[in-house]
């Protein structure tokens, strides 16, 4: 069970049970959807830019505990960051997920270090991030008109 406990750390279980920012964002200026064709899971990420920073970021989708917790934690970590800083954070996160080595005193994202022992699950952990980076590359669009 020890590898499993490393994979499903309490912070991951918590974010899976009570996902933060899982909702559509009508004010979004950028939207992108990521697909995991092997399992059929989808994740849509909504971003509202505030000048050059992420003013608000939310997600919608269903998936395994790893993908849901990863999307949820990602939204808490990326808010307020520039696109360039978000990409740096993703690169650090991807490194942790692939190698299992998290720098000391890294953010809560270090909880995903256990994924490295389950290579088939790496794409679950990075699904929302790929959608977010895709969205951040887009030019701003006018948000959908409010009903």
């Amino acid at each position: 069970m020890s590898e499993l406990n490393d994979l499903y750390q309490s912070v991951i279980l918590d974010h899976n049970k009570r996902p933060r920012n899982r909702r559509k964002l009508p004010a979004a200026t950028r939207v992108a959807t990521g697909d995991n064709p092997t399992c059929g899971d989808q994740c849509t990420v909504y971003v509202r830019m505030d000048a050059d920073r992420i003013g608000e970021i939310t997600f919608e989708g269903s998936g395994c505990a790893i993908s849901q917790a990863s999307a949820s934690l990602m939204t808490t970590q990326l808010k307020g960051k520039t696109a360039a800083a978000a990409e740096t954070t993703f690169n650090e996160f991807a490194e942790i997920v692939k190698t299992g080595n998290a720098p000391e005193e890294f953010s809560e994202l270090a909880a995903f270090a256990g994924v490295h022992a389950f290579p088939a699950r790496i794409k679950c952990a990075t699904l929302a991030w790929h959608a977010a980076l895709e969205a951040l590359k887009q030019p701003d669009k006018t948000p959908e008109p409010q009903q």
Partner: peptide
């Protein structure tokens, strides 16, 4: 519980 979590467990 999602199927992928079931299979991993």
């Amino acid at each position: 519980v999602h199927a992928h979590d079931v299979v991993t467990f």
